[in-house]
Structure formats: C-alpha cells, structure tokens
C-alpha cells in the first residue's frame, strides 16, 4: 500500500458516496446511466471472487465488500425507489459492444488460463470501458447536474491516482502488472475530455454544458 493507491481508493469510495448522496438528496437518478452502474456490479463481482479463497488484508476485505454492496445498492435504488426518474430512452449505449470484446480480450490476455484469472482480466478490461454508457448519456444530453459531475470527477481522480501508484510500485517493489496498467491508461484517457470541461466550467462555478 502506498499513498497514491490509498488516495485513489478513497476517491473511488467517495465517488460512490457522492452518487448515493445525489440520488437521495435530489430524489432522482436523472443523468445517471443504469448501464454503467450495472457494468460496475459485473466488474466488482467478477474481480472479487477471491474473497472466497484468498485473504489479502482487512482493508482489502472491507473495501471489496463495500464496492460490491454499494454498487448493488445503487442498482436497487435505480430499479425501485427512483425508477420513475430514470430515462432508458437516453441510456442507449449498446453494452454488447463492450462485453463481447472484453470477453475475447480476457481469454487472450490473462496471467493464467483459469476461470478466476480470466474473470479477473475480464473485470479489468470491462472496468476500463464501463464508464462509456455514462459518458455517452452525458454527450447526448449535453449537460449534467453539478453533483453528477463531482461523481465523475472523483471516479476520474481515482483512476488517475493509480498511475503514480504503478510507477511507485515499479521503483519500490519491482512490481509490474501489464494488464492493469494498459487497461488503466485507457480508462484514465476516457476522462480527459470530461475533465477539460469540469475544470474550465464546473470548478469556475458554471454549469456543466458541452459546447453545441
């Protein structure tokens, strides 16, 4: 564990709390892609199967439980309490285009051709693109509530902080995880456009609006 990773995980945790807070305070899940949230459940469940057979640390254990539990809770809220505020008509990204390629790539690139390792690789690749339905929705509506942009910013910061974490681990532990690094760089890259608008508009007190 190093500071970058810890802060990254904290940002990840914060992003989820911001999202849940947004839904409860605005009593709405408007602007949130159900598809992205469903993909995150798939990501966490396939990645954290090792909860059943490997102990890493207390921190690791509780974070995994939190990520699985909170992502399921978000889906539950979106399908029950706040269902009327959800608009499937604008959440139209075809997730088959993500699930298919991620499956194929996971079967090719993995550290061991075993079910759990393939699922681990799959979860890494899927996480890297799981935000696309959300960004696509944002692109379609052209604007977002400020709190939603804070959620996305926290997610982006989490990903960005994993990069110095890998650099640090390379120099201090000699650890290199090519699958996580490649997927992580792709994932972080997807946030660049969003961050540009977030920094130049939202942080200046303006509404998040994409140029027409």
């Amino acid at each position: 564990m190093n500071l970058f990773r810890f802060l990254g995980d904290t940002a990840h945790l914060a992003s989820i709390l911001v999202l849940i807070h947004k839904m409860h305070t605005t009593k709405s899940c408007r602007g949130i892609s159900f598809k992205t949230q469903a993909l995150y459940v798939a990501v966490f469940v396939t990645r954290y199967l090792d909860l059943f057979y490997r102990w890493v640390s207390l921190y690791n254990f509780f974070m995994k439980l939190f990520f699985i539990g909170s992502s399921c809770y978000i889906l539950f809220l979106m399908k029950t309490k706040f269902r009327p505020t959800q608009d499937p008509a604008i959440d139209t990204f075809r997730i088959e285009y993500l699930l298919g390629p991620c499956t194929v790539i996971a079967l090719i690139f993995n550290y061991k051709f075993s079910p759990t390792e393939i699922l681990w690789s799959f979860s890494i690749f899927l996480e890297s693109v799981a935000i696309l339905p959300q960004l696509f929705l944002l692109q379609r509506t052209g604007e977002a509530e400020t709190i939603t942009t804070h959620y996305l910013a926290a997610l982006g910061i989490y990903r960005a902080l994993y990069i110095p974490n890998w650099i640090y681990r390379y120099f201090t532990e000699g650890v290199v995880d090519p699958i996580a690094i490649t997927a992580g760089l792709v994932q972080t890259g997807l946030y660049i456009d969003f961050f540009y608008v977030y920094v130049t508009k939202v942080l200046q007190g303006q509404k998040f609006e994409l140029p027409a």
């Binding site: 995980d9 990840h12 061991k112 000699g174 650890v175 995880d177």
Partner: peptide, 10 residues
C-alpha cells in the same frame, strides 16, 4: 516481475 499470483489492488 509480473504479478501472476494474487491481485492485491482493488
């Protein structure tokens, strides 16, 4: 070294 055993990152 490639970490082939045990993924300790979240």
């Amino acid at each position: 070294e490639t970490s082939t055993e045990g993924h300790d990152e979240l």
